[in-house]
Computed example of a mutant assay.
Amino acid sequence: MKKVFFSAVALVTFSFAGMANEIEEKKDVLIVRNNCDVFADGVYNNQINDGCSVEEAHEASVGAYNDCIDLHNKYNISLTEA
């Protein structure tokens, strides 16, 4: 009788343990724009408003973005917005 009871308990325990790995975890994804993205967008918009072509505005904004990243890396400043 003890063996039957132990077997039943073991069967239930292992059944739950086997199902435990089948729970799918949902992970939320947070996309954070950094300060340099916002800065480069502002440079681009200012260039367009000043009458520059799309290509000129793009080049200016890419340069501003790269300068911003270099500055943040040089002084170890956080890139995320507060």
Rank of each mutant, 00 (worst) to 15 (best):
1 M>N: 08
2 K>A: 11
2 K>V: 12
2 K>R: 11
2 K>H: 07
4 V>A: 13
5 F>R: 10
6 F>L: 12
7 S>V: 08
7 S>L: 13
8 A>F: 11
8 A>C: 07
9 V>W: 06
10 A>V: 11
10 A>Q: 02
11 L>C: 08
11 L>P: 01
12 V>Q: 01
12 V>F: 12
13 T>K: 02
14 F>A: 11
15 S>N: 06
16 F>N: 05
16 F>R: 03
18 G>F: 11
18 G>Y: 10
20 A>T: 06
20 A>N: 06
20 A>L: 07
20 A>E: 02
21 N>I: 11
21 N>H: 13
22 E>M: 13
22 E>L: 15
23 I>Q: 07
24 E>N: 06
24 E>M: 06
25 E>L: 13
25 E>I: 14
28 D>N: 15
28 D>H: 11
29 V>D: 00
29 V>Q: 09
30 L>Q: 12
31 I>E: 13
31 I>W: 09
32 V>G: 05
32 V>R: 13
33 R>F: 08
33 R>H: 12
33 R>G: 03
33 R>S: 11
33 R>Q: 10
34 N>Q: 09
35 N>T: 15
35 N>I: 15
36 C>G: 02
36 C>Q: 01
37 D>A: 14
37 D>Y: 14
38 V>Y: 05
38 V>P: 02
38 V>T: 12
38 V>D: 02
39 F>Q: 07
39 F>W: 09
40 A>Q: 01
40 A>M: 04
41 D>H: 12
41 D>R: 13
43 V>P: 00
44 Y>T: 03
44 Y>N: 10
44 Y>Q: 06
45 N>S: 13
47 Q>V: 06
47 Q>C: 09
47 Q>N: 09
47 Q>L: 07
49 N>V: 11
49 N>E: 15
49 N>C: 01
50 D>P: 00
50 D>I: 05
51 G>C: 03
51 G>Q: 00
51 G>T: 01
51 G>S: 00
51 G>H: 02
52 C>R: 14
52 C>A: 14
52 C>G: 08
53 S>Q: 00
53 S>L: 00
54 V>G: 01
55 E>N: 12
56 E>G: 04
56 E>R: 06
56 E>Q: 14
58 H>A: 11
58 H>T: 15
58 H>Y: 10
59 E>F: 12
60 A>D: 02
60 A>Y: 01
60 A>P: 02
60 A>G: 03
61 S>G: 01
61 S>K: 03
61 S>E: 04
62 V>Q: 10
62 V>T: 06
63 G>K: 07
64 A>G: 08
64 A>T: 02
64 A>Q: 07
66 N>V: 08
67 D>T: 10
67 D>E: 14
68 C>E: 02
68 C>I: 03
68 C>Q: 03
68 C>S: 01
70 D>I: 07
71 L>V: 05
71 L>S: 10
71 L>H: 09
71 L>P: 00
72 H>P: 01
74 K>A: 13
75 Y>R: 05
76 N>D: 14
76 N>G: 13
77 I>K: 03
77 I>F: 11
78 S>H: 06
78 S>F: 04
79 L>M: 10
80 T>C: 05
80 T>I: 09
81 E>R: 11
